[in-house]
Amino acid sequence: MAKAHFHKHQRVFVRPVGTWALIEQVKPHWVKGMDEPVRISYDCGLGRDFTTDELSEEERDEQDTGRWRLMRAKNKWQSPDECAHHPFPGTFPIIVTDEQDWGGWRVPGAEYDRDPQLIEFQARIITAAPTLMKLAEKLAEQAEKPDELPDDLREIVEVARTTLKRIKSRPSESAPSGARAA
């Protein structure tokens, strides 16, 4: 009997097509008189159903802080002609920090219109943040043996340690005395 290996809304790699897709529907195939389905196929919205062996799931790191990704949303308030000076006319960036394509970071349209190049740059930085944090953690590990490090690398390690400390502390802990925590 067949068991479902994937679930609805799961992101999978579709090997025959060579692309990532979300499973829209899990389709069990039943035979009369059987307690369980004989096979299961998956509708990924690509024109046909796929079997389990044609799909593969994302490999996840144990300490994965999330696969943050840059997506584009349609600009509801301006046509592509009205915002032709934008890097991607008719759209604006959103950062998705959740597997289900919700949660994350968005920018108001007026702010994006004021400086689209800056917002696009910020979106790329935010998307890279989990990778940069892992890099900083690896650098900070080098601080355990500071005598073995050259002076210039020691400075970089110290910047990584203080940055990680600022990221991992609560806002009230990292605010300088006299400054108000936001």
Rank of each mutant, 00 (worst) to 15 (best):
M1W: 04
M1A: 08
A2H: 07
A2E: 13
A2F: 06
A4K: 14
H5F: 08
H5K: 14
K8M: 03
K8R: 15
V12Y: 03
F13R: 00
R15N: 11
G18M: 01
T19V: 14
T19S: 10
W20R: 04
W20C: 07
I23M: 06
E24L: 13
Q25C: 11
Q25F: 02
K27H: 04
P28D: 06
V31K: 15
V31C: 05
V31F: 09
K32H: 13
M34H: 13
D35V: 13
D35I: 13
E36P: 00
R39K: 10
S41F: 03
Y42I: 08
D43T: 12
D43R: 07
C44P: 02
G45N: 12
G47M: 11
D49V: 01
F50K: 02
D53E: 14
D53R: 13
E54K: 01
E54W: 08
L55E: 09
S56V: 11
E57N: 06
R60L: 11
E62R: 06
Q63R: 09
Q63I: 07
D64G: 06
R67D: 12
M71I: 12
R72E: 04
A73R: 07
A73G: 03
K76F: 07
W77K: 13
Q78P: 03
S79E: 05
C83Y: 02
A84C: 06
H85E: 06
F88V: 15
P89V: 10
G90P: 03
G90R: 04
T91C: 09
I94G: 00
I95V: 15
V96F: 01
D98I: 00
E99I: 02
Q100A: 13
G103S: 02
W105E: 06
R106Y: 09
V107Q: 00
G109M: 10
E111H: 12
Y112M: 06
D115R: 10
L118W: 07
L118Y: 11
E120G: 03
E120N: 02
F121S: 08
F121V: 00
A128F: 03
A129T: 15
L132C: 14
L132F: 12
K138T: 07
L139T: 05
A143L: 11
E144A: 13
E144G: 14
E144L: 10
K145Q: 14
D147W: 09
E148S: 15
E148R: 14
L149M: 06
I156F: 04
V157G: 05
E158M: 04
E158S: 06
V159Q: 12
A160W: 14
T163D: 14
K168S: 07
P171D: 15
E173V: 07
A175V: 09
A175Y: 03
S177M: 09
G178I: 10
A182F: 00
